[in-house]
Nucleic acid binder design. Structure first.
Length: 782
DNA sequence: ATGGCCCCTG
DNA sequence: CAGGGGCCAT
């Protein structure tokens, strides 16, 4: 996984160390492998915090008297960590051999762990830190004394022993505290939700920092050591490792016998040293020594192995602790910086970075991740805060959108299609057959024919000006139909003409009717608003994108050989009506968004339908897809499943979806043929009623001009919003179907139960290619 | 047996 | 427009 930790090479070992894997190699005995050429008492690579994270872990062999509690918590370490550590500090290992290092490790552990405790624990922890610091000071003083004692052996044996005992007591106390903290941590982890955890972590972190600062007041060298590693990440990493090794108990496991001896010796010395006062001089000496611990600890530690190895180890451990504390902080800061930089560069949800953060307070995983979380508490917090902010913003936006969409749902319903159909049907029954059926009457054809050429010339798409340059042209464009002429001869002029007038002119089109599906509408509204909010600011920059996503495909489409330019460019639509423009923009935005994976996307539609989808493709079909399918029906009445897949790239096709879409087209055809049959029968009746030779005006009458009722009905059904120009090809095919039906009815073939199949075959062959614009996801037009 | 289509119904 | 039944081809 790509995490900022990868950028920080020195940190990676620790990350691995936190891995929950426990292998037999973690056993104490395995740690000292001859191949490594390391001393047998080489400390294991147990992460400092590991045992904290695994409270229930199987206790290992007791690691000697010094760390009974710790050993109880001991858990198998991580082989990787061990390996990494093998390549590094040896002095640490030796120092760990001395049990005194455990305390230091515990402190570090606490420092890390404190981030997982709640505020109260944090306070407690601060106290602990102070206490440990004091212990450090004391031990330092003792160390100094010990060094001096090395020179003047004769004195202070008893004092030493006393010191040791004190140290031991303190250590025990620290361990107890640690245990308590650990328990609290577990409880907190189990009970608190993530938000609380994060908040508390922040508080804890603050407190920890404060505690550290306070500690600095006592131990000035901490600051200095921090400075040491300010520029040296490697050193910091080493220090981190050392810290972890301090916690590890394996040295005790491996050499518990030796430790016992040492412990006894220590106690003896402690008792000895008790009598000796702590000299400030020695303290300073020790401090000075620790100042150099970054690089010289080794020698110091080597000295520690000797008679006073415990003391030296203690000193070393303390120094290490100090440096580790600061180094860890540095590491964290550095990682944080790196991480924040990364996140800054990828503001839109850096998955990798986020993934590395255990954002979800998982129980088990959270524990294991917890260590690293602790180390990276700061980064994590920042990241989480960022994420939270992002989420909060998104949620806010979603809520807003939902609200808006809910408001949008309350849009007034618009004229329903059944009304038109019903009107046409009533017209059909009207006594004036000529009016009701423009296809039949000679006067109708006479009127229609002359009007047609002019109508075709008026197609707005043909002389379409550059989208943005000539908005004024739009109003006249969409519907070439001439209202007066149509009304003059159109059947049921009163009702149908009014209705026909209402649908053709897009310039001030009535608000599109809300789709019958409330849920999709909701999604749509949200999506639409989302798109709008996202891209409205981009409107000034639209020209290029518009060209990429809209104009080009539609120009292609317009120049399609099989069809006249029937799809007005979206920019034009935008000028036609703000609402249409909005739809167009939404659709375009959607299309753009759909191309990307993972983005919120959905089918946005003219009638306002969008689906929020999680993946790159949509599981279900949205009203937008239905609309698109209807528009596609203008070109293909019998699309294959492959065709559908080609033109619905944003749909994740499965059996259900495919069958549903096939069913759509089946329904489209059904409606289409029903209308054809109906008008064909009407024409037949009219022709019969005319008493004249039906052939006379049949060819001219059986046509589907843009000014005919049949056209209006079809347009209403497949292009309800009338945003698209119905392809001329579709009109031609409609005429073919109408004539076929008329012919079949006229000749009485309709008596055959399968008489329609022949017509179906004919129409099936008349499918024309779908414009490439439909290959884009979403609706080609709002 | 399966899938596609048509037809009918709600 | 969806669902169910029937038919037909594979």
């Amino acid at each position: 996984m790509d995490s900022p930790t990868d950028l920080f090479n020195d940190s990676s070992p620790q990350i691995r160390a936190f891995a929950p894997t426990h292998s037999s190699t973690d056993l104490p005995g395995v740690h000292s492998q001859p191949s490594t050429g390391r001393p047998a008492f080489r400390p294991p690579g147990f992460p400092l915090i590991h045992h904290l994270l695994q409270p229930g872990g199987a206790p290992r062999r007791l690691g000697g008297q010094l760390n009974p509690n710790l050993s109880a918590h001991r858990h198998l370490g991580d082989t990787d960590l061990e390996e990494d550590r093998e390549e590094r500090d040896e002095h640490v290992e030796q120092d760990i051999e001395d049990g005194d290092g455990v305390m230091e490790g515990e402190e570090s552990l606490l420092m890390v762990k404190k981030r997982h405790t709640d505020a109260a624990l944090a306070a407690e922890w601060s106290q602990d830190v102070l206490k440990v610091k004091r212990m450090k000071l004391e031990s330092r003083a003792r160390d100094g004394e010990a060094e001096e004692g090395g020179r003047r052996r004769e004195g202070g044996r008893e004092g030493k022993r006393r010191e040791r005992e004190e140290l031991k007591e303190q250590l025990e106390e620290a361990r107890e505290r640690l245990q308590a903290l650990q328990e609290k941590v577990w409880r907190a982890f189990g009970e608190k939700n993530m938000a609380e955890e994060e908040r508390k972590k922040r508080n804890r972190y603050k407190e920890g920092r404060e505690g550290r600062r306070r500690g600095v007041g006592l131990l000035g060298e901490e600051e200095i050591t921090e400075g040491l590693y300010d520029e040296e990440d490697i050193d910091g990493g080493e220090m981190e490792k050392e810290t972890f090794s301090f916690l590890s108990v394996s040295p005790f496991d491996s050499f518990h016998r030796r430790k016992e001896e040492k412990q006894k010796d220590k106690e003896r010395r402690m008792e000895r040293g008790r009598g000796d006062g702590l000299h400030f001089e020695s303290v300073m000496e020790g401090a000075g020594l620790w100042l150099d611990c970054g690089g010289l600890i080794r020698g110091d530690w080597q000295g520690g192995i000797e008679e006073e190895g415990e003391e030296g180890g203690q000193k070393f451990a303390q120094a290490l602790k100090l440096e580790l504390g600061s180094a860890v902080a540095r590491v964290i800061d550095r990682v944080l910086r790196l991480y924040t930089e990364m996140t800054d560069f990828t503001p839109s949800s850096p998955p990798a970075a986020i993934s590395f953060l255990p954002s979800d307070g998982g129980t088990d995983g959270g524990r294991e991740r917890g260590e690293w979380m602790g180390l990276l508490a700061r980064e994590e917090e920042k990241m989480r805060r960022k994420e939270e902010e992002k989420r909060g913003e998104q949620d806010e936006e979603k809520e807003k959108q939902l609200q808006k969409s809910s408001n949008g749902n309350s849009l007034p319903p618009h004229r329903s299609e059944p009304t038109d159909l019903g009107m046409s049907l009533t017209v059909q029954r009207s006594p004036d057959i000529r009016k009701a059926h423009p296809l039949l009457g000679p006067p109708l054809s006479a009127h229609l024919n002359p009007s047609h050429p002019s109508l075709s010339l008026h197609h707005p798409s043909l002389p379409r000006p550059p989208p943005l340059s000539h908005p004024p042209l739009l109003p006249s464009a969409p519907q070439p139909k001439d209202p007066p002429s149509s009304t003059s001869f159109h059947p049921s002029s009163s009702s149908s003409s009014s209705s026909s007038n209402s649908f053709p002119p897009p310039p001030p089109p009535p608000p599109p009717p809300p789709p019958p599906l409330p849920l999709p509408l909701l999604h749509y509204s949200m999506q639409q608003l989302f798109s709008r909010s996202l891209h409205h600011p981009q409107l000034p920059h639209l020209p290029p994108s518009r060209k990429d996503y809209l104009s080009d495909p539609f120009l292609e489409f317009s120049s399609h050989p099989s069809s006249h330019p029937s799809f007005p460019p979206l920019p034009l639509l935008g000028h036609l009506d703000p609402s249409l423009a909005r739809h167009a923009h939404a659709g375009r935005d959607r299309e753009r968004g759909m191309r990307g994976d993972g983005g919120i996307r959905g089918g946005g539609g003219l009638d306002g339908e969008l689906y929020l989808t999680a993946g790159g493709t949509q599981e279900g079909l949205s009203p937008c897809h239905l609309k698109k399918a209807k528009l596609m029906f203008f070109y293909t009445r019998y699309p294959s499943s492959n065709t559908l897949k080609t033109y619905f790239p944003d749909v994740k096709f499965n059996r259900c979806v495919t069958s549903q879409m096939i069913k759509w087209f089946s329904n489209f055809r059904e409606f289409f043929y029903i209308q054809m049959e109906r008008f064909a029968r009407q024409a037949v009746r009219e022709a019969l009623n005319r008493e004249g030779p039906p052939r006379l005006g049949r060819e001219s009458q059986l046509r589907v001009g843009r000014d005919t009722e049949l056209y209006r009905i079809l347009n209403m059904h497949y292009n309800k919003s009338n945003v698209y120009q119905v392809p001329e090809r579709f009109i031609e095919i409609s005429e073919v179907a109408l004539r076929e039906f008329y012919s079949a009815i006229w000749t009485g073939r309709d008596s055959d139960p399968c008489w329609k199949k022949g017509i179906y075959k004919i129409i099936c062959k008349l499918d024309s290619p779908v414009p490439d614009a439909f290959r884009l996801p979403g609706c080609p037009v709002g």
